[in-house]
């Protein structure tokens, strides 16, 4: 039984990781959700197995451990809320770009393109006009 649950958790984490590495926002969100389920399955397996822990129903020594179940319940509520927020953001992103692709960091690309300027004095860069096309040949201009 616990091997089955462990395999389930592993599969959920594996599929989740694969989806999170995709560029489509919708897949990333599903991936995060799956990983959350994997973590919850792990939590459930952490406790002792047994009958449902309802006081007075039977002998307490045969009860399942209720603590991990309470923990998993809390975790489910939290991931529910955060997933809702994430979906709202994805919708916002779709409204703005009409796409659910995750874009690159524009600033990073800018720095990569103009990186050599930083080799010069900073104030030289400050008075230089910003070239929207970018990519002046290195080695030219200021010595």
């Amino acid at each position: 039984m616990s091997v089955l649950l462990a395999a389930t958790a592993a599969a959920l984490f594996g599929i989740g990781t694969y989806l999170v590495l995709q560029r489509k926002l919708s897949r990333v969100i599903v991936g995060v959700g799956l990983m959350g389920h994997g973590a919850n399955v792990l939590l459930i397996t952490a406790g002792r197995r047994g009958r449902s822990p309802i006081i007075g129903s039977s002998d307490p020594s045969g009860f399942a451990d209720p603590v991990p179940q309470a923990l998993a319940l809390t975790a489910i509520v939290i991931s529910f809320g955060v997933t809702a927020l994430l979906l709202a953001l994805a919708y916002r992103s779709w409204l703005l770009t009409h796409d659910d692709e995750i874009a690159d960091d524009a600033e990073d690309r800018e720095v990569a393109r103009h990186g050599h300027r930083d080799a010069e004095l900073v104030d030289a860069a400050a008075v230089e006009p910003v070239d929207p096309e970018g990519d002046p040949t290195p080695g030219e201009g200021t010595p």
């Binding site: 989740g16 995060v32 990983m35 959350g36 973590a39 919850n40 952490a46 991931s79």
Partner: peptide, 15 residues
């Protein structure tokens, strides 16, 4: 969120 999921898994292992 990924960090949180790992945290949850770590908690499960700890428990």
């Amino acid at each position: 969120l990924l960090a949180s999921m790992l945290f949850l898994a770590a908690l499960a292992f700890t428990y």
